[in-house]
């Protein structure tokens, strides 16, 4: 891995040799960035290597933990992922995608509307209302999980897709971000002009405001998706049916299966290869969508 980065660094520095970076000690910058890249990629590289090993290979393989074992088991692991417990692994991936996309979409819709409402309308109790939302960011999840579970049980909602999807709609940070973005980047004059032209409030929202809000909407959408994809604690409590598990809960169950005592079995190899595959969709999304992150967060965060 290290050499991959070294190569690209050399290549780039060669191409731009003698270019003008005013007053910047370039070598220092390169060194810092290369060290950082190595650091941030180290566990990822470990995961790539580990996913090619058998269970025994993980513990007793040759060439150490950072290099491939003599037995290459990647495809076997993938095959085993498809058959172990009737291929429930792929079901977990599908569930996670569903939770991330539907949950992300719902959370974004709710947040965008609320953020817009807070930024562009004056109404009674707004200040208190918004402050409570900010306070909500500070409440520990453990305080909510158990009562939520008990309340859900009362209405027969546990062990359903809704039990995971509906709580995801709650995204106070999204509201906060949208509110600031609307205040900063959406001129009141535009809305006022639309009103004067006789446009209704919803039409104004959809036709005038939404297009301008797109960068922030994308950011909130991405943030919600990541939140939903990483969601772990609540689903692990409200779900018992493995067919509904998201990948995080499924893999952690495999982990306890591998470490626990009596009558268990070791499936570390499935854990490592399963982890690798499960991070690929999100990593790709990050790489291809990264400019959207920067756009939305920029507008939202500069308000000083």
């Amino acid at each position: 891995m290290d050499w991959v980065i070294d190569m690209s660094a050399i290549e780039h520095s060669g191409k731009h040799a003698g270019s003008h970076i005013r007053g910047n000690p370039r070598v220092f910058t390169y060194v810092v960035l290369i060290v950082c890249c190595c650091y941030f990629l180290l566990p990822v590289w470990w995961l790539v290597v580990a996913s090619t090993k058998t269970n025994g290979g993980l513990f007793n393989g040759s060439h150490g933990s950072m290099w491939f074992d003599s037995t290459m088991a990647f495809w076997d692991n993938i095959k085993q992922l498809g058959t172990y417990q009737d291929g429930v692994y792929w079901r977990w991936i599908a569930n996670s995608l569903l939770y991330a996309l539907v949950g992300g979409f719902g959370a974004t819709t709710v947040s965008v509307m609320a953020g817009y409402g807070f930024a562009k309308y004056r109404f009674r109790g707004k200040k208190t209302y918004f402050n409570i939302i900010l306070g909500a960011l500070m409440i520990p999840a453990t305080a909510l999980v158990i009562p939520t579970f008990l309340l859900m049980s009362d209405i027969n909602m546990t062990d359903t897709y809704w039990a995971v999807l509906l709580p995801l709609m709650l995204n106070p940070f999204g509201v906060y971000l949208m509110r600031i973005y609307c205040s900063e980047s959406l001129p009141d004059e535009m809305i006022e002009a639309a009103r004067v032209d006789g446009s209704g409030e919803f039409r104004t929202f959809f036709q005038v405001s939404l297009p301008i809000m797109t960068p922030a909407i994308t950011t909130v959408f991405l943030l919600s998706i990541v939140g939903a994809w990483n969601n772990f604690f609540l689903p692990s409590v409200v779900l018992t049916n493995p067919n509904l598990f998201p990948i995080t809960v499924g893999l952690s169950q495999w982990q306890t299966r591998s470490t626990a005592g009596s009558a268990s079995e070791q499936i570390w190899n499935l854990l490592t290869s399963g982890s690798l595959i499960s991070v690929i969709p999100m990593v790709l999304a990050f790489i291809f969508l990264q400019r959207y992150w920067v756009g939305g967060l920029a507008a939202g965060s500069v308000k000083a």
């Binding site: 990541v226 994809w229 991070v279 999304a285 992150w293």
Partner: peptide
Amino acid sequence: FLPYAIPAVI
């Protein structure tokens, strides 16, 4: 930025 894409559990 990449580690942020990886669930904390993993």
